[in-house]
Every structure is written in C-alpha cells, then in structure tokens.
Design a protein around this nucleic acid. Structure first.
Lengths: 117, 117
DNA sequence: ACTATATACTTTGTTTCACTAGGTATCAAG
DNA sequence: CTTGATACCTAGTGAAACAAAGTATATAGT
C-alpha cells in the first residue's frame, strides 16, 4: 500500500507533459520545474522519471527532439509536439475528463441513471 | 504505452472499494457488479484484480471479512469497513480531490498564483 | 445422471510504469 | 581546482493491475 499520489500519477505524466509541450517546445530539465510550478509544487518528479517518459513519447511519434546549443551552458534537447502528439493530447484529455467524472460520481454516492443494460 | 484507463485506475481502486463498502457491507463478487453499475460500465475489473485488492485492504486493517452462508448458493465473504477504513476513505477522498484539481489546473493552462518560492 | 451455466473465491505469473540511485558532461563562481 | 548548478542518461527495484488459470457449490436443461 504505497502512497496514493505515486499510483495516481501513473498514466497522467504523459498527459501532463504533452499539455505543457503544447504551449511551447521545452527541454527536459525545464519541464521538471514547469510541472512543479503549474501544479503548485504537487508534482515533483525526478529526472529518472522524466526522461524515460520522454523517450516513450518520442518512440510513439508524439514529440520530436532537437538539440539546441545555448550561448552558454550545456546542450539542451528541446522537444516539440507533433501533429500526432496534439491529437493524442486531445484524446487523453477527453479520457481524463470522463475518468475523473466517473470517480467523482462514485465518491458522491450517486447512482448514475439507468445505463448498462 | 498502454491504455490510459488502465494506468489511471491505479490507486483509485482502493478508494472506490472503500467508498462502496462504506454504504453497506458487501462481498467480493457483488462488488464487481456494483462498481460496474456505479461507474456506468466504465470500470469492469476482473476477479483476479479485485481479490488481491481486498486482501491488501484486509491486511491493512481497513476492512474485516465475515463468512456468510446464504440459504442457497456458495458461501460469501462479506467485507465490512472498520473505523480505520472510514478514516482512510476520508483521507483518500481528500487526496483524490487535490490531485484531480491539480491535473485540471494544468490541463486548463492556468498558472496557479505565486506559490512554491 | 450428466452437462452446462452462474455464482463465488483463490492463486500464479506477466507487464508496465514510477521511482531510487547512481552516472556523465558542461560551465560559472570562489 | 573544487563546488554547485545545469542538463541528460541508465540500470535495477517494486507495486499494482492484469490475464489466465483453478476450485467449489448450486441451479437448470436434457
């Protein structure tokens, strides 16, 4: 019985990263702080969590990386959303809304009106 | 990259089962159909998923089982929420609300006001 | 009597994902 | 020249949901 947060985060990371990348192409390290900021400090993931997700997104063709050498500092791998990535973002957002609505319905103790016959 | 639903369900099962059991002590097999009904058919978990969760809840002292022999048919293991289970339900509900609110904020593209300094 | 179906609980093994805990490399500041 | 911040990468671990079995009882059909 682990922390709920850890388990809840499962699957949502992909959605959240796509959402942030939709605003603006961003590199990995920066994604960490943006995610932290936008969630009011709730989602503090580590690099060892982040990069594997980015590779999955890349393998799935949802994002494309481009190496970027800033004037000073280490090189950055900037990820940009592809068309497929935008589609996926819409898909996942819809799925999330349906899912969380279903949970909320159960938590509120309401029986949904007659379905599933 | 599996289905989002599968991953999202992670961690929420415990919460949902506790919620259903809070209404009324229920046995495993019945929980399956109640969960399906209350989620409008969205959450169709299998027995191989359900029972291990119930055992975790039992080990954690959140529910207690009682064998019940109905007039006809196979014996039923009816689970009842403990006081600890009720507390945990409140805890998890709060955590869920905070979590889903955080996701919604990020999805809506709003920056939360200055926090996390 | 035999078979199938529905009910009801159990167990084993697999997969996926987030995490821990390291590692490499570059650059600025002291 | 060492420390710390930035930035990326990887191997190994663990927990949860799942698939796919199995056991047992009772009812219905032939």
């Amino acid at each position: 019985m682990e922390s709920l947060e850890r388990e809840l985060r499962r699957g949502t990371l992909e959605l959240l990263l796509l959402r942030i990348l939709a605003d603006e192409p961003t590199y990995g390290y920066e994604l960490l702080s943006r995610l932290g900021k936008r969630s009011s400090g709730r989602f503090h993931i580590k690099e060892g969590t982040l990069y594997p997700v980015l590779y999955r997104l890349e393998d799935a063709g949802l994002v494309v990386p481009e190496w970027n050498q800033p004037a000073r500092g280490a090189a950055r791998k900037v990820y940009r959303l592809t068309a497929a990535g935008e589609e996926r973002l819409v898909e996942l957002t819809t799925e999330w809304r349906g899912f969380s609505a279903a949970i909320d319905t159960i938590l509120s103790g309401q029986e949904p009106e007659e379905e599933e016959r």
